[in-house]
Design a protein around this nucleic acid. Structure first.
Length: 431
DNA sequence: TCTGGGGTCCTAGGACCC
DNA sequence: TCTGGGGTCCTAGGACCC
């Protein structure tokens, strides 16, 4: 059996833990650059605000109803997520951290000894008490069914019914649950597949489970579709994946605060993203062999495609060295640079990720990349930024010329304090 | 004026290799 | 008349997830 623990309205719930005055009010959290709505409280959902709505479009509605607006505060959400995941890891035999607000639990072997419904209820209660975050739990024989059970548990819980837990333990319960979920709400059925399914009259998860395997293979992404049907029918096709073993790529990408036309500005952003990517690698003890640098123009402007330009470079040895990554990224950027365009986003993506130090090839030319001096330099770099704050030490090319504002800097006008990760922003309690 | 960021998996054609 | 099979690497894009 698999469990799926999913935090309710996660970003909103994180804000409410430290700002209880937001309780029962409509609240939205915006993406970087205050671009889109990415999280909504129940009250905000009731007003018709949708995931992904551009802020500038829904602003009148937000102001009309006095909706509280938060810029995204990933330091806070990341830290709250770690607390939730840590507790789950103390509690369940194996945990797959699926996203910032969700985890799959491997409950194999617990079926005979525990009442899983009761156990899941205790986990919910403990999480609420220890972290302040409300959750719902689905339990079922496959991951896809656990997601589906979670969805039903959440719908009932929000509607004032149910305990926030649903266990699908036998065939009758499984069949009944499938009839209550719309096909577009099944995990793995997106916008495109839903349209195809509607066109042939498939409306519910139960009907989807009954379509022919051949049809699914042809129309739902080949083997991906076939697996989906098996999982809905109760045959597990995917196990628990412990996160660290699984990481294959890693990225740092950002939209600019406003469109950028100069190479120096895009190059500064790219150097900053290469720095960020190097920090992520070292934090996780990883090194990468492939680096992709890309830049994009706006897909919403009246300019024909292409919108995206990228170059992938192979490094002689896997590296986690910021200066090497920044140099390689710069080389790639020069290769793809086209003047006369308004760029809105750039990024660095690392592939060919491996454990640092293991399996790393030795370069024929000896001194490429990993020297003790450079390893020491990076250690000092991380230590200084850790002690005195991110960005204390930077790559010079990422810094704007004296007196100039960074053309590409992000907008975050309504960010809450980093209540749990910054000494200067700790929550103040008056007695 | 203003439309996120970080992932996974899959496909496909051209260049190039043996 | 007749021109293989099996790879990797690169770029690009589609579909899906949270």
């Amino acid at each position: 059996m698999f469990g799926l623990v999913d935090c309710n309205n996660f970003y909103d719930s994180c804000e409410r833990v430290f700002r209880p005055e937001l309780e029962e009010r409509p609240v939205v959290v915006l993406s970087n650059n205050d671009g889109c709505v990415v999280a909504r409280s129940q009250e905000a959902k009731a007003l018709g605000l949708k995931m992904g709505d551009p802020y500038f479009q829904v602003r009148p509605l937000i102001e009309q109803h006095g909706v509280v607006v938060c810029s995204s505060n990933y330091e806070l959400y990341g830290d709250m997520s770690r607390r939730v995941m840590w507790y789950l890891q103390q509690t369940a035999p194996a945990v797959e951290v699926y996203s910032i607000d969700e985890a799959f639990l491997d409950l194999a072997g617990m079926t005979q000894h525990f009442d899983l419904g009761r156990w899941a209820g205790e986990v919910r209660g403990a999480l609420r008490q220890r972290t302040g975050i409300p959750t719902c739990v689905g339990v079922a024989p496959t991951k896809t069914l656990a997601k589906l059970a979670n969805k039903l548990a959440k719908t009932e819980f929000v509607g004032g019914r149910g305990a926030g837990v649903l266990v699908l333990s036998d065939e009758a319960e499984r069949r009944e649950a499938l009839t209550r979920v719309a096909v577009e709400d099944v995990w793995g059925v997106g916008y495109r597949s839903a349209a195809k399914l509607h066109a042939v009259g498939v409306r519910t998860a139960a009907q989807l489970a009954g379509v022919g395997d051949a049809w699914a293979r042809k129309n739902l992404g080949g083997v991906v579709g076939a697996r989906l049907l098996h999982e809905l029918r109760g045959f597990s096709c995917a196990g628990i994946v412990v996160e660290d073993e699984a990481r294959k790529s890693l990225a740092c990408t950002r939209s600019f605060g406003r469109p950028v036309t100069e190479l120096a500005d895009v190059a500064a952003a790219v150097a900053s993203h290469a720095t960020g990517a190097g920090e992520k690698l070292r934090r996780q003890g990883l090194a990468a062999r492939l680096l992709t640098v890309f830049m994009e123009t706006s897909r919403f402007a009246e300019v024909p495609p292409p919108y995206s330009f990228s170059a992938q470079l192979t490094m002689p040895v896997a590296t986690d060295d910021t200066l090497t990554l920044a140099q390689v990224a710069r080389k790639g950027l020069e290769r793809i640079w086209r003047p006369g365009k308004r760029y809105v986003k750039a990024g660095v993506v690392l592939d060919g990720v491996e454990r640092a130090g293991t399996g790393a090839q030795v370069s024929l030319f000896g001194d490429v990349g990993v020297t003790p001096e450079r390893t020491g330099l990076m250690r000092a770099f991380d230590a200084l930024n850790g002690r005195f704050g991110a960005g204390t030490v930077k790559v010079a090319t990422s810094v704007a010329a004296p007196g100039q504002r960074q053309a590409w800097a992000m907008r975050r006008d309504a960010k809450s304090p980093a209540f749990t990760t910054n000494w200067g922003e700790l929550w103040a309690v008056r007695c």
